[in-house]
Design a protein around this nucleic acid. Structure first.
Length: 353
DNA sequence: CGAATGACCGATAATCAGGT
DNA sequence: ACCTGATTATCGGTCATTCG
């Protein structure tokens, strides 16, 4: 039997009731009073015929699509994990989620946005790196609710709000951690000082060295994609005359941390004795590698749920956060229309004593 | 021939009606 | 008056038919 053509008309005929009754039984059980016998007849007919709800028709009538759009700059690493959590959180709230990657290309961004708006999504969740300010403003003036995430230093008025992970603060803590572990000198390595994500982290690192008054014992490096980490390691060792270990490295993400760490080990240096290395993202392997990689954990669940709740009820901004215990920091803080989520340091062997 | 009209897709919300 | 279930208008677009 071809279930795709079974509609409530067929179910109504089979159950000897009206189509409205079928709709009421299948979708509004708790609100509409109905006889037990009617409910049983309809449910049985629907089951026998293999009825499947047509959400397109429902959207047409309800003037809501119950679909949300998620725009990311890509699918790798953090973005994929984020999409997974977001999809599940949206599903829990009765929404479907369409996920697109803009590949950091304004033309692709425009095409995806247009496609999502044509389908009348009920709201958009957009990564700061996936969006231009102009197209974001255009959407907002169109009336589609929009919440940004990881959109640092965006104009306040541009969307309902932004839900950001506070990598800047995490890097400040990172510097302090490396210092507390006895690092004579600390360095930051990142891909590009023009990338908004890198700017956040780099800025946090520099701020961290300033707070500890160790600007003179620190440095930042820009690492191109096909870079030989060996050269950098040689430079650092020369800089220290080989006797001011350990050297602390805060990397842009876990992948860069591993590339540095593995090259250092290959060259015979001890981790964490001579180099202490930490990353950001707390990726799957950070926990299971040897040595385990110290990293900054990203509270995906919290970020996704805050963003979704805000998107679906724009008039109700996120409630103030409460620390779960006195020794734990606030899970997040709110400044204007921006939520900053605290990202905790997970300390492992790569920076251990 | 192009323009205007109306039926139609499937489900739903609002309204209505029949039976106790 | 209260339940329960039926009727109807409607959503926004497409397509076939009719009209001038």
């Amino acid at each position: 039997m071809k279930n795709r053509n079974i509609t409530i008309i067929d179910v109504a005929r089979e159950a000897q009731v009206s189509t409205a009754t079928v709709s009421n039984v299948l979708n509004r059980k708790s609100n509409i009073p109905m006889a037990e016998e009617t409910i049983r007849k309809v449910e049985e007919a629907a089951k026998n015929l293999g009825y499947r709800r047509n959400v397109l028709a429902a959207s047409l009538s309800k003037k809501h699509s119950y679909e949300l759009g998620l725009l990311l700059p890509g699918f790798a690493g953090y973005f994929g994990s984020f999409a997974e959590v977001m999809e599940s959180a949206a599903h829990d709230r009765g929404y479907r989620l369409a996920v697109y990657s803009t590949e950091s290309d304004p033309m692709i961004e425009k095409r995806h946005l247009e496609s999502l708006l044509e389908r009348r999504v009920d709201g958009l969740l957009c990564h700061g790196l996936a969006m231009s300010h102009d197209s974001t403003r255009a959407i907002v003036s169109d009336g589609t609710p929009l919440v940004l995430f990881n959109a640092w230093d965006w104009p306040e008025d541009i969307a309902i709000g932004a839900v950001n992970v506070d990598f800047r603060q995490a890097c400040i803590y990172g510097v302090r951690h490396l210092r507390e572990q006895g690092c004579e000198w600390v360095g930051y390595i990142g891909p590009s000082p023009t990338n908004a994500t890198d700017i956040q982290r780099r800025g946090g690192f520099i701020e961290g060295t300033r707070l500890l008054r160790i600007e003179e014992q620190s440095g930042c490096f820009v690492i191109p994609a096909e870079f030989d980490y060996g050269t950098l390691i040689d430079q650092l060792v020369a800089l220290h005359n080989g006797d001011r270990y350990p050297i602390g490295i805060l990397a842009f993400d876990d992948a860069m941390a591993y590339r540095f760490l593995m090259k250092a080990m290959e060259k015979g240096y001890r981790i964490p004795g001579q180099f202490k290395v930490m990353g950001i993202n707390n990726s799957y392997y950070a926990k299971f590698s040897y040595p385990g990689l110290t990293s900054v954990d990203i509270p995906y669940d919290l970020q996704a749920n805050l963003a979704l709740d805000w998107l679906l009820s724009p008039s109700a901004p996120p409630p103030p956060s409460k620390p779960s215990s006195p020794d734990i920091k606030e899970p997040y803080s709110i400044v204007g229309t921006t939520v900053n989520i605290y990202a905790p340091l997970i300390i492992r062997g790569s920076t251990g004593a």
